[in-house]
Amino acid sequence: MSSHNMIEIRGLDSHYKGRQVLFNIGFAIPHKKVTVIMGRSGCGKTTLLRHLIGLKPSESGRVFVEGQDMGSFDEKGMANYRRRIGVLFQSGALFNSLTVSQNIAVPLKVHTRLSDETIRIMSLIKLHLVGLADFLDYMPSQLSGGMRKRAGLARALAMDPEILFVDEPSSGLDPITAAGLDDLILELRETLGMTIIVVTHELESAVKIADQMVVMDRGNLLAVGTPDEIRSSQDETVLRFLRREAEEQQVNTESYLSRLLGRQYKAGENSTRRQGGVR
């Protein structure tokens, strides 16, 4: 295995409540680069992210962190891995009962013996970085969605992570703030050499920040490459994705009719009923 890869994924399948949501995913996430995982909503990219941060257990021999099999991590191994990562969740996932600065202090308080004053200065540094230095003592409920997300980023950066995972950085943000966030991601890679994995459906921001792009569709890997390679791709589905064309609906007329007319049908029953529950 190449030492330039931070994380390597091989033949990853994933099931959710009896439905397969990822099919044989395999690619590598290089060191100190920005990797963008793209696809429209429901394509399984967030599920993939959950595998990478160990929230969804995968079979042994599927996800490797610096050559080590994540499936074989025990509790301690997982904790060690997680001390090296920072995760920004889609909604920011701030703790409601704590102020913004207390939110950032949570990992520091648990994992370090730093004094309260040092922790306070660190929170301020991180908040200033995301442009929220004036909101130190606000409660999350007093912030807008975009601010919550930026505060979540400050918290993800609290422990100076080597690897940063970002779920939909620009969703719910105004274009200017979103662009600022993209710049910050680039700066983090530039200055600190952070390995960054971004999950998004925004093509523009993906092309702007990505060193490597991973395009997904309905649980399948469509393409992996630099933004230029992706753009010059000849693959029909990738092209359609780039042109943002609506996918042709593959309507199964027979099942549609039988559903309308109340006759029993079998194929696809489970998948349609459970579509609501994909995460």
Binding site: I53, G54, L55, M78, A79, N80, R82, R83, I85, G86, V87, F89, Q90, S91, A93, L94, F95, N96, S97, V106, P107, V110, H111, G152, R155, M159
Partner: peptide, 20 residues
Amino acid sequence: AEIGIMRIEEQIDALECMAV
């Protein structure tokens, strides 16, 4: 309800990802 809200808002996931 408090814990449940933390679950649905990914706050518990966030704790786990901080190795807390």
